[in-house]
Design a protein around this nucleic acid. Structure first.
Lengths: 267, 267
DNA sequence: CGATCTGTTGAAGTGAGTCAATAGTGGTGG
DNA sequence: CCACCACTATTGACTCACTTCAACAGATCG
């Protein structure tokens, strides 16, 4: 639904000549220095942490920070898979479509996440910026050559990919065997853990994605997501001060629920 | 349900001293030669294909072919993750359980598949032999040292893991967004492709796993799996000569169905 | 401040689940 | 070889969690 690869800039955009189909380099104030990697807030979370300080300039030479606006689709399934992406800021939604339009969101990516691995010549998925997103984009071949010289990076990438694989198996349990309540509880707990890992308070989680994206991630409909949110509010588990934010009031119960133990009906 | 890690051998087993908790070395006729890897039928399909002929003895030194009987659980979720496995024969079921016993099968592994990656100290999943299974078992640390000397192997493992990740995202689409008919069609087509890849005729697929395993893989119940099989027979899409075997009569329609196009109700 | 999205709530429908009975299937031993 | 048992698969009747369809409410933004 509504992926437009078309032009990225509005009329009057100050960088008409430099525009790429899906993204543009950062504007002046944020222009990459000689060592953007050294200052990158996402480095410790990402692939790039496996590169020693003195080699960072080689990594920096491979890429340039870019940004895309919210709601922009910057990878379209089926396009040639020429690039790999390291998300440095914002939230990205990865999804696949069935021919009739049914959508499955296979993941949300955050600061530090890596994107684009896959052996195919073309992307098997689409990616859309949920918020404004910054990323470093690498050429596939260039990154592979780089990894030949820096085996630690390859090891790190393997570890990250193995992590992803384990996470996706957890998501299969969710999609195949959990109830709507359990699914949404799992989602909230997952976001809460993410938030905590970034050093923020774990009881306030951002929900930048739409209800529809949440539904497509959990294998539900928008209506069910909405109804379960309302249930959770009534049960005193959460508060929803705004649409884009949730406050977790009873974390323990949510965790229990996410693991399949529903205090409402443990029989 | 019913995972017994206990003793693996019957009384009178000729190798009582060498018995490991979950498996035993192959009996005499199949005893590993100096170069078991050179003769391994699964090599070209697996990780080991990335090792040159003259280095195979180093790989062989790391491991020893083993086998487990059908229905034996040889990895239990929560156990220390000391080993990695390369399946050389048979079919393995990987699964996770919710505390109340709900089961999600996250994958079936076949000849050439690799098993055990994951950054954790303990396994996050259980693995059970569906048929008699042969595998090569590696120590985690030993394999990582080996990969330091043979970066090609690490590259291969990364590629294989990325493949797995893509496949697991496809499975998310199946679990989250496909109907029962579409799920079972996808399953049959997947098995058919596997079969073809091993050079066998693609219209006869083996179904060594139980209906219950199939259901737990597809996020359904046994009854629904059974009912849809019956539908497919009535629709002339397949034949089920025995429980453990299916003949595909109308591959084209099954492929269509698996992709979400149901000729019965395209409306 | 109306227009347009996005989210919520309600009423009714349904695909798959549950519960229950029956039919195969394979193994065992007399 | 058959009779029995235990287990797996199939089929049927009924239920229900979630979907669908529809109306409404709240947010966002020219």
């Amino acid at each position: 639904m509504g992926q437009d690869k078309a032009d990225t800039h509005k009329a009057g955009d100050p960088y008409p000549r430099v525009i790429l189909p899906e993204a543009r380099p950062l504007p002046h104030g944020l222009k990459p220095s000689a060592e953007p990697c050294a200052a990158c807030a996402a480095r410790v979370l990402s692939l790039c942490d496996a590169v020693d300080q003195q080699d960072l300039h080689r990594l920096a030479a491979l890429t340039k920070p870019r940004q895309v606006e919210a709601h922009r689709t910057f990878i379209v399934a089926g396009d040639p898979a020429e690039h790999l992406f390291n998300i440095t800021e914002g939230v990205v939604k990865i999804y696949r479509l069935l021919p009739d339009g049914r959508q499955q969101v296979t993941g949300f990516l955050f600061k530090g996440d890596f994107l684009g691995l896959g052996p195919e010549r073309t992307y098997a998925f689409s990616a859309e910026a949920v918020t404004r997103v910054r990323y470093c984009r690498f050429g596939r071949a260039a990154l592979h050559r780089f990894m030949d010289d820096f085996p630690k990076v390859e090891k790190r990438l393997l570890a990250m990919t193995a992590n992803e694989l384990a996470a996706s198996h957890e998501q299969m349990v969710l999609l195949g065997r959990k109830t709507a309540r359990e699914k949404l509880a799992s989602f909230l707990v997952m976001l809460s853990r993410r938030t905590a890992r970034l050093g923020k308070r774990e009881d306030v989680v951002a929900l930048p994605m739409s209800r529809s994206d949440i539904a497509d991630y959990l294998g539900l409909t928008v209506e069910t997501v909405s109804r379960v949110f309302t249930q959770f509010k009534k049960d005193g588990l959460i508060e929803l001060p705004t649409t884009g934010r949730a406050r977790i009031k009873d974390r323990e119960t949510l965790v229990q629920l996410s693991e399949g133990v529903d205090p409402r009906s443990p029989s």
